[in-house]
Design a binder for these strands. Structure first.
Length: 172
DNA sequence: GCCAACGTTGGC
DNA sequence: GCCAACGTTGGC
């Protein structure tokens, strides 16, 4: 199996990276949610759906990544507070990501809830990641990678915290 | 704004 | 099941 196909196929991961376009949902939007909790709805990709439904567990760490901007970067930390459950927005004809094939019995799409934990003192940009001996291997750097939720290794998670100068919020 | 890479759709 | 066409993502 290719490295490319390996992205997203690791059911053992306890750490994840989630992308968000800040024009749509930014780190400050996230921080300002009640209790910092946000349902991660609207994912309509089967590989990401499988992760949301099967692999992502309560307490897992999340690197929050700003995409589709001039300086894409990891900007914050979050954790999973609710495991995969049906994405009801797929059932709502008025919702952005309505899917007419989805039903109560066969929801097709799933989501998790994530909770804001911290903002990095400074964003870790793609350039920063590419320069780093551990982080250069992250899936998010791979050309053409469009997976909006992807696994991160423990080493990568720790390297991000070290770079950011933060203590591990999940270790307390 | 450009365009490469990718996932999905649908004709055959 | 193949694959061309299409829409979307997302870095640059």
């Amino acid at each position: 199996m290719s490295i490319k196909k390996d992205i997203g196929d690791n059911p053992e991961s306890n750490y994840w990276l989630m992308k968000s376009e800040p024009n749509c949902f930014s780190l400050s939007d996230f921080k300002n949610r009640p209790e910092g909790i946000e349902p991660w709805d609207g994912v309509r990709n089967y590989q990401a759906r499988n992760l949301l439904r099967d692999s992502i567990k309560c307490g897992d760490g999340v690197l929050f990544y700003h995409s589709n901007i001039s300086q894409p970067a990891i900007v914050g930390l979050a954790r999973v507070v609710r495991e995969g459950y049906p994405d009801h927005t797929a059932l709502d004809p008025g919702a952005d990501h309505f899917d007419p094939r989805a039903t109560e019995a066969k929801p097709i799409w799933y989501m998790v809830d994530v909770q804001y934990l911290a903002s990095l003192p400074a964003p870790i940009t793609r350039h920063d990641l590419a320069q780093h001996p551990v982080l250069a291997a992250m899936g998010v750097l791979k050309k053409g990678n469009r997976l909006s939720v992807q696994p991160v290794t423990r080493e990568q998670w720790q390297a991000v915290l070290l770079l950011a100068g933060l203590d591990d919020p999940l270790a307390i």
